[in-house]
Design a protein around this nucleic acid. Structure first.
Lengths: 253, 253
DNA sequence: ATTGACCTTTACGTTACGTCAAGGTTTATC
DNA sequence: GATAAACCTTGACGTAACGTAAAGGTCAAT
């Protein structure tokens, strides 16, 4: 089955402008254009649009959706299963909101007391990010560390191989870091190797690497107690040591 | 309890910029500003912000929210009950989407066949009737029927054909109604034909038809002066006549 | 041959904020 | 009692994901 813009738009419940925009930003290009320049969409595009709409429904930016879906490791079926989980999560949040509105009705009728905090329960879907913003400043909450290992792996739609590679790399970083820490020299060979491994680990998550961002993340390892706890688990002072090594590696400061 | 911008922002899970913007557009002004020009919010503002966020969650534009909430007829408790209904509606739509994703998974696994239409079930927004009845009043008032038809057509993502059909139907309703009005009998053949045409017109906008809702809308044509004005334009009493005809048609009352 | 619903590109407009910038205020700490 | 950190203020420009309008080509049906 082939569709023109308007036909596909009607089928999917979006506007034709939306489809043209999606073509423009390269997230959904037509199967072909006919001799008059009309966009013609086929079965593959229908399915791709469906995927896009699932991501969009979950509040993912189009640019991000594009990155996810054009990655060579993208697996449509895995993505769908992820959608299902996210949608169920969204449903749970909606239920929270419904509880909230019911409690609020009860409280306006004097049948109940409500704290100010309770009044905003269920709106919080972003509160986790907000909480993290309280600690860090920018890229950090996005590219943080431990939650990222799982949640971003999902978001990036990593393959099993990638996930294994990244987990292995993480172990290597820790190992190299332990060795380096024993030398006590953040500028030494061992420490610089650890910094480089850390960078390679990072590139699995970051779409583009910059020294500044890398240095910033390193600083956060010291500033944010949750990360400090993670790195200092074995040896106190490890987080600060890693920061110093990375700062030297990136040539910052 | 009094809050500064940041405090309230944290409580509600929004940014301080958002609160300043809300002040700027006049949808949520602080209770007072202190001697240094700081915004100070009180209990009333907390509750108002909660209401705003409920509306926002339902996808209502801030400008519209403002109009709704500053209207003298605004009733907070009634609004909350509407929120509950709308949220339940939203949950139903979410469930549709979840069913969709599950069917899609099954179809990629070859356990099921899916039509292209089915692939987009749950994405399309409904709420058009609400839009029409509650939030579209001033749009209707300002720009008249033609633009309302157009904006609704866009909302429903109607095709040109549909739009034409709906415009034609509307003319037929008026014509049949004028004829019926001349007979003076709301139970007569002419009047019942007008009621049926009116129902057909409605089904272009409503995702599901019910006699109760139809009867309710008819009553509103009499209660709301703007609708009354529209129907009584040619003949005073036409709105009431249409209501009676529809009430008989639907078997209500 | 015309009409009217399609399609195209170009381009400016809109909403709900995010993100500096430049500067004043409050609070905690040395 | 100075000073830094952490607030607050008002601009003002940036953005995402389209909406909307303009100017014009295409296609099917009358």
């Amino acid at each position: 089955m082939e569709y023109t813009v308007q036909k596909l738009a009607q089928l999917a419940g979006v506007s034709s402008r939306t489809l043209r925009y999606y073509d423009q930003i390269g997230i959904l290009t037509p199967a072909r254009v006919n001799s008059s320049g009309y966009r013609i969409y086929g079965q593959k595009e229908v399915d791709r649009l469906q995927q896009i709409l699932f991501y969009r429904e979950l509040g993912i930016a189009l640019e991000t959706i594009k990155e996810i879906m054009t990655a060579p490791s993208f697996d449509a079926e895995k993505a769908l299963k992820e959608h299902r989980e996210q949608l169920l999560e969204k449903r749970k949040q909606l239920d929270l909101l419904i509880t909230n509105v019911e409690k609020t009705i009860a409280s306006t009728e004097g049948r109940m007391d409500m704290s100010d905090q309770e009044k905003f329960e269920g709106f919080k879907k972003k509160m986790i990010d907000e909480n993290q913003r309280k600690y860090g400043k920018e890229i950090r909450e996005k590219y943080g560390q431990e939650t990222v290992n799982q949640s971003n792996a999902k978001l990036m739609n990593m393959s099993q191989e990638d996930y294994e590679a990244v987990t292995k790399l993480e172990a290597e970083v820790r190992e190299a870091l332990a060795e380096a820490f024993a030398t006590g020299d953040p500028a030494g060979e061992q420490a610089q190797k650890a910094a480089e491994l850390h960078k390679r680990w990072l590139t699995y998550y970051w779409t583009e690497y910059s020294k500044e961002a890398h240095a910033g993340l390193a600083q956060m390892y010291v500033d944010d107690e949750r990360f400090t706890a993670y790195y200092d688990k074995e040896q106190p002072g490890m987080a600060a040591f890693l920061r110093d090594a990375i700062h030297i590696y990136t040539g910052q400061k």
